[in-house]
């Protein structure tokens, strides 16, 4: 009888150990959107999570990648289509627009001045804070290829890597929280 109990306890301990090893105090985020409002929300959640000592990993894909361009840098060896895309897409976090009420840029500049008045950090400042907090940024390689962006035109950021969906999935699988923005 005792032996059976001991066996069951050992089995349960092994299962709990496995479960605990599976989830880290980690937040994984997909930043798909390239809108000012949505990226701002993503950055606020990310930095907030970092205040909780959570490891934060942000996977920037599709429209989101444009926010990571450095306005002072240019990519080399682009073809015609890539150049066109490069012209049409916002060049960096300072150029992304509101998802609603943009009104030819009027809404965006209005919200930026309201943000300033309310002491809300700008996207550029948020990226700087995120870097200081050790937040990891992954950029989807496929999206960069589609948009025609080059690694050398992306912002200087301490923890920035170009990778694929497998990296996101590996991170997300061991995270307590996963978000798609």
């Amino acid at each position: 009888m005792n032996n059976e109990f001991e066996q069951q306890i050992a089995q349960l301990q092994a299962r709990i150990g496995k479960m605990e090893a599976g989830t880290k105090d980690q937040l994984s985020m997909v930043v798909f959107s390239g809108d000012l409002d949505k990226i701002l929300a993503a950055m606020i959640i990310a930095t907030g999570a970092a205040a909780y000592d959570m490891q934060v990993k942000m996977f920037f894909t599709f429209w989101g990648t444009a926010a990571l361009r450095d306005p002072k840098k240019t990519g080399k060896g682009k073809n015609f289509m890539s150049k066109m895309f490069g012209k049409m897409l916002p060049k960096g976090a300072g150029k992304v627009k509101l998802s609603k009420m943009n009104m030819c840029g009027m809404g965006t500049s209005m919200i930026k001045s309201i943000m300033k008045k309310n002491h809300v950090a700008s996207l550029e400042e948020m990226f700087k804070t995120a870097g200081e907090l050790g937040i990891v940024i992954h950029i989807c390689e496929m999206s960069m290829n589609l948009m025609g962006f080059k690694r050398e035109e992306m912002i200087d950021y301490p923890n920035l890597d170009v990778c694929g969906v497998a990296t996101f999935l590996a991170d997300a699988a061991e995270s307590k929280i996963q978000l798609f923005i």
């Binding site: 606020i44 930095t47 907030g48 970092a50 205040a51 309310n118 002491h119 809300v120 950090a121 907090l133």
Partner: peptide
């Protein structure tokens, strides 16, 4: 006082 959410939290951390 010069920051909005999440500024005070980050400052505290």
């Amino acid at each position: 006082r010069g920051t909005a959410c999440p500024g005070p939290l980050l400052a505290a951390k």
